[in-house]
């Protein structure tokens, strides 16, 4: 993780994504107007969060399998960055919603899902902090991490499909059509997801190294 090439890659991709998001032709849609460009900033936070939290869960599984403290550290810090992304996603979403849908919190199922997700991971940190023994903390935290992720699956992927949503991609809301992304948006959107995720990994790696140093100093 200490290699530099992927960090340079992340920065390059992000520069491309920001330029592309601001300058490329965007579809002219009613109500959305120029805010369609938020897609590359707001929605990417959401995707990045899911990727980071999934990675955190996978590492929690590895920790439970092997008992290697290293994986626990990785898992926590990834969850930490994931939470940062989810907060950013919620806040940017609220700003966008204020202008596109008329109010910052419109009770949209995806918005509520994001809030619940945030609650779950905050509970995860509370749980970890209330256990003193390091081995116990890793094990129990890991178990909760996996269990919470399992509970999130229906919330994130199934429930939004069953209900009407203001978000694109699901629900038949007549006042706001559900648009699908086209290829011209995708060539910016997918790189942006990768870029933001890599940036998140970079942040996590910095924190992991910091924690390792801290631990070394304590010993």
């Amino acid at each position: 993780m200490k290699k530099t090439w992927w960090k340079i890659l992340a920065v390059a991709i992000l520069i491309y994504a920001i330029l592309g998001a601001l300058l490329f032709d965007a579809p002219r849609l009613n109500i959305l107007n120029e805010t369609i460009r938020n897609l590359h900033f707001h929605v990417t936070m959401w995707f990045g969060m899911i990727i980071l939290l999934t990675a955190s869960m996978v590492l929690a599984i590895r920790y439970l399998r092997t008992g290697n403290q290293k994986f626990d550290l990785y898992s926590v810090e990834l969850a930490n960055v994931g939470v940062l992304f989810s907060i950013l996603g919620l806040v940017t979403g609220a700003v966008w919603a204020n202008y596109a849908w008329g109010e910052p919190w419109s009770g949209d199922p995806k918005q509520n899902g994001a809030a619940v997700c945030l609650l779950i991971y905050l509970a995860y940190f509370v749980l970890r902090n209330s256990i003193n023994d390091e081995q116990q903390r890793g094990r129990i935290g890991g178990i909760y991490n996996i269990f919470a992720f399992a509970a999130l699956i229906p919330l994130l992927f199934i429930l939004p499909r069953m209900t009407d949503s203001l978000h694109p991609g699901n629900g038949g809301n007549p006042g706001f059509n559900a648009y699908d992304m086209d290829s011209r948006l995708r060539i910016v959107f997918y790189p942006a997801v990768i870029g933001w995720t890599l940036l998140g990994l970079w942040m996590a790696s910095l924190r992991i190294r910091m924690r390792k140093v801290q631990k070394q100093l304590e010993d």
């Binding site: 032709d25 965007a26 579809p27 002219r28 849609l29 009613n30 107007n33 699956i153 229906p154 992927f157 199934i158 499909r161 069953m162 694109p168 991609g169 699901n170 629900g171 038949g172 059509n177 559900a178 648009y179 699908d180 992304m181 086209d182 011209r184 948006l185």
Partner: peptide, 22 residues
């Protein structure tokens, strides 16, 4: 769980890029 039905999406077409009324 994934079997639950999804909904229709509306494609963004080339016209949307030319639509100067917006």
């Amino acid at each position: 769980l994934n079997m639950v039905s999804g909904q229709d999406k509306i494609e963004i077409t080339a016209d949307d890029y030319e639509n100067t009324t917006v």
